[in-house]
């Protein structure tokens, strides 16, 4: 049900936007638009259905964990 609604919304956005871009022959813009729309639709379905997927913030935690641990160690010594 949710999937159908999201696909309908995506189709509506296409109907509004694609003619403008096609008239100007914006090929690159259209490609980016389609990629974004597909990604957005998939993410919206995941969000509505509340499926658990790994959070992108895990990347930030992964990058900064060593730095934080290092700083903690440095300040604890002093």
């Amino acid at each position: 049900m949710v999937t159908i609604i999201v696909v309908l919304i995506a189709a509506a956005i296409c109907v509004f936007q694609l003619p403008i871009m096609m008239r100007n022959r914006w090929i690159k813009e259209t490609a980016v638009f389609v990629v974004f729309l597909v990604a957005g639709s998939i993410m919206s379905v995941i969000a509505w259905k509340m499926i658990t997927v790994p959070s992108p913030l895990k990347l930030i935690v992964y990058i900064y964990k060593p730095i934080n641990q290092f700083l903690e160690l440095m300040f604890r010594r002093s």
């Binding site: 974004f36 639709s41 993410m43 969000a47 509340m50 997927v53």
Partner: peptide, 9 residues
């Protein structure tokens, strides 16, 4: 749509 999805993810 991406932000809407990411806000939950």
């Amino acid at each position: 749509m991406i932000v809407f999805g990411l806000a939950m993810i």
